[in-house]
Design a protein around this nucleic acid. Sequence first.
DNA 1: TCTGGGGTCCTAGGACCC
DNA 2: TCTGGGGTCCTAGGACCC
Length: 423
Amino acid sequence: MSAPVALIDCNNYYVSCERAFDASLVGVPVIILSNNDGCAIARSGEAKALGVKMGDPVHLIRDKIRQHGIRVLSSNYALYGDMQRRVVAAIEPFARDFEIYSIDETFVDFAGFEHLDLAAHSRAMCAQVRQWTTIPTCVGIASTKTLAKLANAAAKKNPTFDGVADLRDEDLCRWVLDQFDVDDVWGVGRATAAKLAGLDICTAGQLRDMALKQARAIGGVVLERLVAELRGVPACAIETVEPQRKGMAVTRSFGTPVTDMDMLMGAVAQYAMRAGEKLRQHGLVAGRLTVFFHTNRHKQDQPQYSATRTLSMQPMTNDGLMLLAYARRGIESAWREGYGITKAGVMLEDLIDADRRPRTLFEDDSGRRDRLMVAMDQVNMRFGTFAAVPASQGFKREWAARSDSKSPNYTTRIAEVPAVKAR
DNA sequence: TCTGGGGTCCTAGGACCC
DNA sequence: TCTGGGGTCCTAGGACCC
């Protein structure tokens, strides 16, 4: 028997974060919108019960929102990111080790804890998270990460588990796997589910019983590993050290279409500067930059244009103004008049640690540019994003994404911290 | 008027080399 | 007239995740 693995997952995470600071959101249907206030990306239980689906475009559910008085909020990532820090701090004392898998999910290594009643231990962990953050959580325990994901889903779905499902019991595991559709399994998406349906494999239990060879034939090594995991044979370990990242991106949709190259340049200037900031935060430099922009693909009756330019950067850099210069070249070479551009972005690849950066013969080693970047980071940190920007970015930002109903930065900006009044 | 953003991994196929 | 086989590296694209 392999060591127990648990997945602790926050319920309706973004909504729960908002509720922590606004009691009027408790007990009523709430949805959180994607960037640009485009579609619903998080829903309270009440909103799910009203039939709001993940990814529903908000303009298609206006009637439902009005009819049921659904509360609608723009997303507030500064808040969700900061709350995650607090959630993880509450989990930490209960785990031998852990892997932060996403903004609302953490895998917990329970190796060496087998002598404990792990369900009780997990409930204590959830109680700690709730006390420190008010955020409700569920836990799934199993012998592999894939089974822990399903255990967690079972704990959320079936009230008899009371928030914690332990699938190390084989009979219980079989019973639960037969309850879930194959596309509920972690790693099975639309394409794979369709192939499996052709073989009459429709439940997680049937997928577990599939021949490994056949799994390999239709879904490659990924599906083969997945079937092994469903059988309780670990094929993916808990990653407790954060792996070196391979790329990063800053991309946005525009609030209104952009038809002017200078205006596009303004948006991309902001993304390039932000990308440089992210590189410096992670202590990295990049060797390759891709800039892209395109028209609205949902409107096929309008003229479509999509462009991508990839440039290799020498020397490798994390200097925002350098990134901006490369991005500018890409845009100038790809720009065409006569289109309404609705999205653009800057992506960086070939990332390595800044202190392992290969030196080139003719570069400026004085460090002046590094100091400029440090200064800009400090100004923006202290006076708010966009306090110091290159002139090409402009200050009007006509293209800025919509964010009409964002909650305050309760925990990350001192001016917006909620005040508690004594009576 | 109105449809997100940011990642990872795997595979196939071309270029190139010996 | 006849024209190998195998390895590596890189890139683009698909699939999936939250």
